[in-house]
Design a protein around this nucleic acid. Structure first.
Lengths: 190, 190
DNA sequence: TCCTTTTGCTAGCAGTGCTAGAAACGAGAG
DNA sequence: CTCTCGTTTCTAGCACTGCTAGCAAAAGGA
């Protein structure tokens, strides 16, 4: 029994090692630099070891994304709960979301832009993702008016996501970034 | 002189052939299927011929994108000019934009999502792109209010883009799609 | 007809994700 | 302490990617 559990523990540790290495490599050099060979070298094992833990590279990326959802949810929660008043809460949550996307672009990409095989807008979605969305929903609630809260939250989220991705891909001028964010918030909080 | 011009004409024709083949292949089987070998086979020339026309695969994709900008601009213009009244014009332009993105996802991706080496939010941007953006700007103008028209247009565009990309990547439930679009328009046209 | 220049091809490089089959390792039995 | 049997891990390789050097063929001019 003891030997078995030790092995399982070591296996779990190595799995975490893989996910962490993938995330760090992606964040420092971009996802293009995350090759199976490079990753294997980083964890000091040979390539096929990766495939004994994950079905393929996509599965590793998905695991990184799930890790990211937890981080994002925590930061959104902190922003919302420390704000004074509903108007400030919405602004702060939006600000925290934008800051996360700008500070960790590679992580953000795998969470929301790249095609990974994960359930999203369903009950099977990762719990951390649902918690993160819930933070945004709570911040939006006071401004829902006649609109359906779920739909409104999704729409604001989309607007935010669009602003951030178009900015980072060079489709929008950086100068207007903050002003556009302000317009988005103002139009959705009245 | 005549021989020279004939050669140039034939070269230009072949260049169009490459771009068209790339676009059609991408639209029918996705960008993953657009490999240089596959493309070469499609145009019935060998691989290196592609590199005598374009610097690399990215340049071919950029050329496809530019073609797409012209198509989109035409559709937006048609939508705007045939609408009755400013409110309808904005709704129709948004609708036309969404329809374009949904009908031609691969083309839309290379235009607005994938990283291609093209100037965007500057005077050096492709003319068709600027014309397309101008259609949206004209439709937004009546609703600018105190907001800067340019910024407001960019913000609406981003919202639209976010809704469409998150939808297509499975991050949003398809059921609410039209409702979310309606919320976006309503919040930005008052 | 011969020569020169342009044009397009064959073959190959270094890299990718992924996998089959061999080798090394570790745990228990004698 | 040694041997055997299952796991675990590695080496080597496949089929593919974008891209390019250098040779062969075609075309135009003398």
């Amino acid at each position: 029994m003891s030997i078995q559990t030790r092995r399982e523990r070591e296996r779990a540790e190595r799995e975490r090692l893989i996910v962490t290495a993938a995330r760090e490599l992606a964040e420092s050099e971009g996802w293009d630099a995350v090759t199976t060979r490079r990753l294997a070298e980083e964890i000091e094992y040979s390539q096929p070891v990766l495939y004994s833990h994950f079905k393929g590279k996509d599965a590793i990326m998905a695991a990184v994304a799930v890790e990211g959802f937890a981080d994002l949810a925590a930061e959104l929660r902190a922003a919302r709960t420390s704000a004074t008043g509903p108007r400030q809460a919405l602004a702060d949550v939006v600000e925290a979301y934008a800051a996360f996307a700008e500070r960790r672009p590679a992580l953000y990409d795998v969470m929301f832009t790249l095609a990974v095989d994960l359930p999203f807008a369903t009950l099977q979605a990762p719990e951390a993702l649902q918690q993160g969305f819930d933070e945004l929903r709570q911040a939006v609630r006071p401004f829902a008016g006649d609109d359906d809260l779920e739909m409104l939250t999704e729409t604001i989220w989309s607007g935010l996501h669009g602003l951030l991705t178009l900015m980072r891909n060079g489709r929008l001028r950086p100068e207007g970034h903050r002003q556009r964010l302000a317009i988005l918030i103002r139009r959705f909080s009245s």
